[in-house]
Amino acid sequence: MSQTQRHAIPFTIGSRRILTATRTVATLPFSLEDILTERMPPVPSLTNTDGLRVLSAPTYAEDRLREAMPGFAVGAYEAYERSYIDMAGSYDGYLARFSGKTRSTLRRKQRKFAKENGGTLDMRAYHSPEELDTFLSLAHPLSQRTYQARLLDAGLPEGDDAIAHMRALAAQDRVRAFLLFLTGKPVAYLYLPVVGDTLVYAFLGYDPAQAQLSPGTVLQMAALESLFAEERFRFFDFTEGQGAHKALFGTDSVACASFLMLRPGLSNRTLLAGLAAFDGAVSRAKKLIGATGLEASVRKILRQ
Rank of each mutant, 00 (worst) to 15 (best):
A114K: 05
R124H: 13
E78V: 05
G159W: 15
D160P: 05
Y94Q: 01
I163F: 05
M166A: 12
S137T: 12
L151F: 07
P141A: 14
F98H: 02
A171Y: 12
Y94A: 02
L151T: 07
S99V: 04
Y94H: 00
Q110L: 09
F135W: 03
A76R: 08
L95N: 03
A139C: 06
L169D: 12
S90W: 13
A168D: 12
L95E: 14
G71D: 14
S56I: 01
A96Y: 03
D153Q: 13
Q110W: 02
E78R: 14
T146K: 04
A139Y: 13
S90R: 12
T120K: 09
T59H: 09
R124D: 09
A164K: 15
N117G: 04
G159P: 03
L136M: 11
S137W: 06
L152Q: 14
D153K: 10
G75C: 07
E116Q: 15
K112N: 15
L152W: 05
A170T: 05
E62A: 08
L65Q: 07
P141G: 12
P157G: 10
E78D: 13
G71I: 07
F98N: 00
Y80K: 00
G155C: 10
Y60L: 08
T59S: 05
R107E: 14
D122Q: 13
A164D: 15
D161I: 12
A68H: 14
D86F: 05
S104N: 13
D153F: 06
A114T: 09
S104T: 10
F98A: 00
L142W: 15
H165W: 14
R82S: 02
T134Y: 01
P70K: 15
Q144P: 00
A76T: 03
Y80A: 06
H140K: 11
R107F: 13
A88G: 07
L121W: 13
G118P: 03
L138S: 08
A68T: 10
K112Y: 12
M87R: 06
L152V: 04
Y91W: 15
P157A: 14
A114G: 03
H140E: 13
A171Q: 13
T105S: 09
L152Y: 09
T120L: 06
S137Y: 03
R64V: 07
A154H: 10
T134W: 00
F98L: 02
G93R: 07
A96H: 06
Q148I: 08
L136W: 07
S104W: 08
P157F: 01
E81G: 02
H127I: 10
Y80C: 03
S137R: 15
D161G: 00
